[in-house]
Design a protein around this nucleic acid. Structure first.
Lengths: 235, 235
DNA sequence: CCTTTCCGCCGCAGGATTGCGGGGATCCCC
DNA sequence: GGGGATCCCCGCAATCCTGCGGCGGAAAGG
């Protein structure tokens, strides 16, 4: 199996450490001291995962991300020195699958890499099963979710006013409607790594979400001792 | 859940503060004034997280890290007095999951600990899901088990309400339907290694499981002096 | 047949989990 | 700076789950 990984990082010590960690886990790793060199290598021979620092000589990690995204859907992890470098609003980081804020734990990065590879395998599996409509609207029960406008409509054509967090939770549950989602996963995927929130925080959001979904046919059911799953109410 | 944490820190005040904070969050904490004592205790009974100061009487935190890494993958957090003590290049800190530079806020350490535990839980969970392979349903007798939704259905399409532990036991027996499973193996794989539970506990769970399986064609048969095996009822 | 070990069941109490109301912190927009 | 919206956390109570002690019965083993 032995997945191959490319890393661009100009701080030699960090590069070396990360590389050592990943290689110890059996990955084939190539390091670069700037993003352009990585991109050139990627053109020659693609890899299975890319890790990019934001600030490097030459192109930034975001620019490289964009260039790679034009030709590939390879998973990308971004490393940033400060949280503020992550400008969600601009959407420039769209396409990166994950990010780490320095200083980060090398072991955590490895865990994330392993999880990413597992997820990719899972996605491939689901693709083979012939599902996954990416572009259009998301339908469930009497709900209609427009990912572009982030609007949610009920059957009667009434808009459902959701807060950003509520929307994100609903969307994630929707995208994984066929399985139960654990609290930890929700926290991880909605709130994000590094955020420190109580596990109970997602209970709160789910509670408010439930209240707003009362008049719809969509229910957020509790999977006891685990998490939640979306169900249609069949009366 | 109550995770157990070992801390080695020779500065009594810091040790006491950190210990108090962590205990207030519900963790079981043992403090040591040097790393060697911690390592000895770890050999006797492993814990779920290790926090190590770098500079201590006896072995340094890095040396202890190395020794622990030879026998365990337990998460390790390093405390250092200065950033310069963290020498990435030497790789001597390989294996530590995270680090804090003194002076640090006890609260932020606690937050990091919680995030780490969450990540480990998620990692385990995804690992399990990965191992399960095919996302399909598991069939046995007139039972239908959906591993994604964690639901169990009988022949007539009625849902079987199982508790998490019952579900896990049934699933494990199902995945090993072709052989008898010992009590110790059940305890190991369902309850988890290191848990201190009486063997009788799984008898109880099996009993409750049997009651709920009464109306199905699935039987949990006893293998005398050993454990259990799943059988279909012969009508 | 008798002893020993094992097994299933009962009831219970401690613990874990969850939903809920309320309070306070933060952010954003005016 | 005010006001509102949003979000997170703190207790609390209700519910659900779980491990344990005890007990009687059943299965090996002599």
């Amino acid at each position: 199996m032995e997945n191959s990984i490319y890393i661009a990082e100009d701080e030699e010590k960090i590069l070396e450490t990360v590389q050592t960690f990943l290689e110890s886990e059996g990955y084939r790793v190539r390091g670069f001291d700037n993003g352009d060199a990585l991109f050139a290598a990627f053109l020659e021979e693609p890899c299975d995962l890319v890790i990019l620092d934001v600030l490097m000589p030459g192109s930034t990690g975001f620019q490289i991300t964009k260039k790679i995204r034009e030709i590939s859907t390879v998973p990308i992890i971004i490393l940033t020195a400060r949280d503020s470098e992550l400008d969600y609003a601009t959407g420039i980081n769209l396409g990166s699958d994950d990010y780490f804020t320095k200083p980060f734990s090398a072991m955590s990065l490895v865990m994330r890499v392993k999880a990413l590879f597992r997820r990719v395998r899972l996605d491939r599996q689901e693709l083979q099963e012939g599902r996954k409509g990416e572009g259009g609207e998301l339908l469930f029960g009497d709900l209609r979710v427009n990912r572009r406008t982030k609007e949610v409509w009920t059957g009667r054509g009434e808009a459902l006013p959701l807060t950003p967090t509520e929307y994100n939770v609903l969307l994630y549950l929707l995208e994984n409607r066929d399985r139960a989602v654990s609290r930890d996963e929700l926290l991880d995927k909605v709130w994000g790594y590094g955020k420190d929130v109580e596990t109970r925080a997602c209970d709160d959001t789910v509670r408010r979400l439930r209240k707003k979904l009362e008049d719809t046919q969509v229910r957020v059911e509790t999977v006891w001792g685990f998490g939640f799953i979306l169900k249609e109410a069949h009366p």
